[in-house]
Computed example of a mutant assay.
Amino acid sequence: MSKRDYYEVLGVSKGADEREIKKAYKRMAMKYHPDRNKEDADAGDKFKEATEAYEVLTDAQKRAAYDQFGHEGVNGQQGGHGFGGGGADFGDIFGDVFGDIFGGGQRRQQRAARGADLRYNMELTLEEAVRGVSKEIKVPTLVGCDVCDGSGAKAGTQAKTCQTCHGHGQVQMRQGFFTVQQPCPQCRGKGKIITDPCHKCHGEGRYQKTKTLSVKIPAGVDTGDRIRLSGEGEAGEAGAPAGDLYVQMHVREHDIFVRDGNNLYCEVPIGFTSAALGGEVEVPTLDGRVKLKIPAETQTGRMFRLKGKGVRSARSGQMGDLVCKIYIETPVSLTEEQKELLRQLEDSCGGLAAKKHRPKTEGFFEGVKRFFDDLTR
């Protein structure tokens, strides 16, 4: 039976480059592999045909001979055994094409892993966050063994090459035509075995320890900010670099102030006499008390801004403000004499004088009246 044209087998043009050929072969191999087509008797033959075409067309010398003389030009180079007879191993071909799926190269040793990053949650008062502070923290972590310098082997000894994978860190398993690579189960992908482990770390190259670190918190940090301490995370395997430690900030709620970015907000209660006649009231800031002048006829909810009394940004250095919100406190536990005085005040502000003394109240009820009048029309 005459052989089909190799380009036709793979469905590529004669000018196809190696990348196109590899892609076409991968598609054919996935389609006709015997393990995926156990009920199709012809699948195995089509799979072998595609592999033979791939072997020839990806070899520059064989491809040149094939292009000039056809199948006769490559029969001698293949040793008369069809595909793979010239010393090419099918596992090499398949591993080359499917290396991105099954882990690639046959001599890939697993690299020692970098240490894990760690996170520490730090609680701060508002004053600490605004002014900055230095704090000591205790962090349980894995540290490099100081006895064996992270090698895991007892002093004076060294790890030996794994006899299962011969130091490659990978072993191959054949499943039909597939060659699958996986980490060596004997050395766990390291390529070496420690026969005489260090007494302190028991061959791990690192051990558990609680480290005490001093952390300098810059002024102006806020909840959600974090500080990176390079190399203060877990030690890496077999001397690999350590991870980092991230100190995550959380600022506790304050009894007086609420922070929003660089600004601070607080509510300032005043009596209705001070609100009506005006006056001065002491308000707190993070630097001490300051006098706030209250103009006459101040209403509840009015805002007063004190420039530069907020928080200095840790990033830009810009200074925020303190915003004071006024609310008028209603007097409680009044005596009968005080109640009578309030009644007299109420009477004097009512009647025709109401619009003058209570414009918002009068305006509100006039609006309510118009609303119900419109509903009844």
Rank of each mutant, 00 (worst) to 15 (best):
K192D: 10
K192S: 09
K192P: 00
I193R: 13
I194G: 03
I194A: 09
I194L: 02
T195D: 12
T195W: 07
D196M: 00
P197I: 15
P197V: 15
C198A: 09
H202V: 08
H202C: 04
H202W: 02
E204H: 02
E204M: 05
G205H: 04
R206P: 05
Y207R: 03
Y207P: 10
Q208G: 05
K209P: 01
K209A: 09
K209T: 04
K209E: 15
K209W: 11
T210V: 15
T210G: 06
T210H: 02
T210S: 08
T210L: 07
T212H: 13
S214M: 06
S214F: 00
S214Y: 01
V215P: 01
V215Q: 02
K216L: 07
K216T: 11
I217P: 12
P218R: 09
P218C: 05
P218V: 01
A219F: 00
G220E: 03
D222G: 07
D222K: 11
D222S: 05
T223D: 07
T223K: 11
G224S: 08
G224F: 03
D225N: 14
D225A: 09
R226V: 03
R226T: 07
R226N: 10
R226K: 13
R226F: 15
I227E: 04
L229I: 11
L229N: 03
G231L: 12
E232D: 13
E232H: 12
G233W: 00
G233K: 06
E234T: 06
A235C: 10
A235V: 03
G236W: 06
G236A: 00
E237W: 08
E237H: 05
A238I: 08
A238E: 13
A238V: 06
A238R: 14
A238P: 08
G239L: 11
A240N: 01
P241I: 04
P241S: 03
P241N: 01
P241Y: 02
A242T: 14
G243I: 02
G243N: 05
L245H: 10
Y246T: 08
Y246W: 15
Y246V: 07
V247D: 04
V247L: 02
Q248K: 07
M249R: 04
M249V: 10
H250Y: 02
H250G: 02
V251Y: 09
R252E: 14
E253G: 11
E253N: 13
H254I: 02
D255S: 15
D255P: 10
F257T: 01
F257E: 01
V258P: 00
R259C: 05
R259K: 09
D260S: 15
D260F: 06
D260K: 13
G261M: 08
G261D: 06
N262E: 15
N262G: 06
N263S: 05
N263L: 07
N263Q: 04
N263A: 03
L264P: 02
L264I: 07
L264K: 11
L264V: 05
Y265F: 15
Y265N: 08
C266F: 00
E267Y: 12
P269L: 14
P269E: 10
P269A: 15
P269C: 14
I270Y: 01
I270W: 01
S274M: 14
A276M: 00
L277H: 05
L277I: 03
G278T: 03
G279W: 04
G279K: 07
E280K: 14
E280P: 09
V281E: 14
V281P: 15
V281C: 09
P284Q: 15
